[in-house]
């Protein structure tokens, strides 16, 4: 896409238009750049440095080389946490993409409840994480909470929700999904609305079923939107741990909700292991950068082939 743009807009023209050169561009870039350097990259370098030390915030840090990284790779807690994080991130992302799209289809349907549906699906997005965690924590009370009461009405056995290792992570995923799916859903909705009606009608006239139209035309046309949703969701979910903090599961039971972000937080501020926490942070950064890079390459290829 960028390549095509360059052909239609020769560089020389744009330089001529609004200045250029480093001197010309710098004043525009400066505000953002200063903030990024001060509050993102400088501290990132500090974190990188601390990851090679035994920093505990109590004493001057001592250089320990790769010790923290060695410890990390051998640590069962870390590997467990990584598994939990990947499950959480992939599950939430898959739900947001899949059901987000499905909800968008439904939100586009002209019904009496169209406006209600749109409003309802997006409403949790404006509810804060803290509020969401508080509400759901009580709703998930296994003894007499409304969720189990609901299951009982349906003739289903009650669940332990956050109190059982086999359901705790799924419960957190459910909360994250409720809180988060509104955004991808409306993004998809906008994507749907941008698809030319004639295209769909032509397909209909050719005798395609609704499902065929969706599979052959709509979903492929939504691919760029999917890329954006995927990217935002993955990057966000891999870092997130606010829910865990407020739900006070302490990463449990049995480590089943020990998201990497929470593991880092705990090591830094409860276990006096800042150096180790920094090594974990560096790992998380590299992981996210790698994910972003893979995704970028994938979307680039897609664009080229189209």
């Amino acid at each position: 896409m960028a390549v095509a743009r360059r052909f239609t807009n020769p560089r020389s023209l744009s330089i001529q238009r609004f200045g250029g050169g480093l001197g010309g561009a710098l004043p525009y870039l400066l505000p953002a750049l200063v903030i990024f350097v001060l509050f993102s990259y400088y501290p990132l370098l500090r974190v990188l440095y601390l990851s090679f030390t035994d920093a505990d915030l109590l004493r001057p840090p001592q250089w320990v080389g790769l010790e923290n990284y060695r410890k990390m790779l051998l640590s069962r807690e870390f590997l467990g946490s990584l598994g939990v994080t990947a499950t959480f991130a992939l599950a939430v992302t898959a739900l947001e993409v899949g059901l987000g799209m499905a909800l968008a289809f439904l939100m586009q349907a002209k019904t009496r409840f169209q406006s209600l549906l749109r409003g309802a699906v997006f409403a949790p997005v404006v509810v804060s994480t803290v509020s969401a965690a508080l509400i759901w924590q009580y709703m998930m009370n296994p003894n007499g909470g409304p969720l189990n009461a609901g299951l009982q009405t349906l003739g289903l056995p009650p669940l332990g929700w956050l109190t059982r290792p086999e359901t705790a992570l799924a419960s957190v995923i459910l909360i994250a999904f409720w809180k988060g799916v509104g955004l991808p859903a409306v993004i998809y909705l906008a994507g749907l609305q941008a698809i030319p009606k004639e295209l769909l009608e032509a397909a209909r006239v050719d005798g395609a079923t609704t499902w065929q139209v969706a599979r052959r035309i709509t979903i492929p046309l939504l691919a760029p939107t999917t890329m954006v949703v995927l990217f935002l969701s993955l990057v966000g979910t891999f870092q997130s741990y606010g829910l865990i903090l407020v739900l006070r599961t302490d990463g449990g039971p049995v480590g089943s909700t020990n998201l990497l972000g929470y593991h880092i937080y705990q090591n830094a501020f409860q276990y006096f292991q800042m150096g180790y926490a920094c090594a974990l942070s560096v790992f998380l950064f590299l992981l996210l950068a790698a994910l972003a890079w893979i995704q970028f390459r994938l979307s680039e290829r897609r664009v080229h082939y189209q």
């Binding site: 059982r164 290792p165 302490d250 990463g251 449990g252 039971p253 049995v254 480590g255 705990q266 409860q270 276990y271 006096f272």
Partner: peptide, 18 residues
């Protein structure tokens, strides 16, 4: 011991819940 507490919790939950 502060960190051991979390490990004890995890182990007991593993025994009792799993």
């Amino acid at each position: 011991y502060v960190q051991a507490i979390q490990e004890i919790r995890k182990t007991l939950e593993d025994i009792w819940l799993n």
